[in-house]
């Protein structure tokens, strides 16, 4: 499942809820991404999505991860709107029978989210504002899975 939210979220509460009432899941891996201050250069991040389209594209990638790693469940929660340093931006949880699939699927989904997911990200700081594009490292990370 993919959800976008304008509101801050609590990764611990999401993990507790995600693990509830599971009897066949032997492994849950999670990733939480936080907004960085970049030593004061970033005061706010602004993340824009295309409602409907963004969820559908991420959902396609979740479907691929489910098949490729044999996952039992996936949750992706992503912030949109204005985010301040220290706040969680993204939470990914993967559930599998055993740990390797859960770890790898979480890594796979984050590499996709960081390089290809339909978001437009702007950094605001004391020197003004600028649009951010994926780094060469982000693209190289995604290439590991092809």
């Amino acid at each position: 499942m993919i959800r976008l939210t304008f509101e801050p979220f609590d990764p611990g509460a999401l993990l507790t809820e995600f693990c509830r009432d599971r009897t066949e899941v032997g492994a849950v891996a999670t990733f939480t991404g936080l907004a960085r201050a970049e030593a004061g250069a970033t005061t706010t991040l602004e993340l824009e999505a295309y409602p409907g389209f963004t969820e559908a594209e991420i959902d396609k990638m979740i479907g691929r991860a489910r098949v490729r790693f044999g996952l039992l469940d996936v949750l992706v929660l992503h912030r949109v709107g204005r985010i301040v340093p220290g706040e969680p931006i993204v939470f990914v949880a993967t559930a599998a029978g055993h740990r390797r699939a859960a770890f790898e699927a979480c890594d796979f989904l984050m590499d996709y989210l960081k390089s290809r997911a339909p978001f437009w990200k702007k950094e605001h700081g004391p020197d003004g504002e600028r649009w951010i594009e994926p780094t060469a490292q982000d693209h190289a990370d995604r290439e590991r899975w092809t």
């Binding site: 989210l113 437009w120 951010i132 994926p134």
Partner: peptide
């Protein structure tokens, strides 16, 4: 009709 510039990722 949506014009989508290169995506930033999340």
């Amino acid at each position: 009709v949506a014009f989508l510039p290169p995506m930033s990722g999340g």
